[in-house]
Design a binder for these strands. Structure first.
Lengths: 111, 111
DNA sequence: TCCATAGTTCAAGGAAATTGAACTATTGAA
DNA sequence: TTCAATAGTTCAATTTCCTTGAACTATGGA
């Protein structure tokens, strides 16, 4: 058995660490993908392609410790779900506004 | 004459750099203070006390380059104003939600 | 049992944050 | 005009953080 994942309680989640986690383009992309996917996703699926696995692993750890995702082992893979609903209770509107802005920004880039 | 401050055009402002700038506790505090003050404020006034001036200067530079503040020299001091209205056009709701969450977080800490 | 898959951990190199010290620019007073 | 005070900036050094290759662990299937 590998060491279990540690998830902060909602009370331990700070605005600064949430913003810090989302400030990185890779992590924001992961969160957007998890959000748009609608269902739990393993690490390789949600992360941008061609990113070294060790780097991916690090980014998932940051997202986990910030309280943004919950990770569970399922066989050989790790399945991740967003904790947006919880965080939205504590910091109303923050995550939805950021996700919407991220989508809008990418649309603007394509146009 | 000192070199003039450079402010990115709204089109150059990215969500990632805005979040990055706000992810730091000192910079978030500066933005909150500028927001709650309602009027332009010089650097020393808006920054937390006891922070070295060189560190303050660095944080203001990050805020400026992220597009969050506009800085103008007035005599010996630099007067800073928030660019929230502009950014709110580009990324609706992001800044208000973060500012509200920051206020709520500090209230919760006091309680 | 052996191999492939999916991640983790560790260590090293490179990039970024913090801050003391020296500097610049402006203002006001003598 | 000269001097001193005020408000920031710049530079350089230290420390701290990020990225990633290499080696490793754990699970599941052939």
């Amino acid at each position: 058995m590998q060491r279990p994942f540690l998830h902060p309680a909602l009370g331990e989640v700070t605005l600064e660490s949430v913003l810090y986690a989302l400030a990185d383009p890779v992590r924001l992309a992961i969160v957007c993908k998890l959000s748009s996917g609608g269902c739990p996703m393993n690490c390789s699926t949600a992360a941008p392609l061609s990113l070294p696995k060790s780097t991916q692993s690090h980014h998932y750890q940051v997202l986990r410790e910030a309280g943004l995702i919950r990770s569970e082992r399922r066989g050989t893979e790790v399945v991740n779900t967003l904790r947006c609903a919880e965080i939205n209770e504590k910091f109303p509107g923050v995550i939805p506004a950021i996700l919407a802005a991220s989508v809008a920004q990418h649309k603007a880039y394509v146009d």
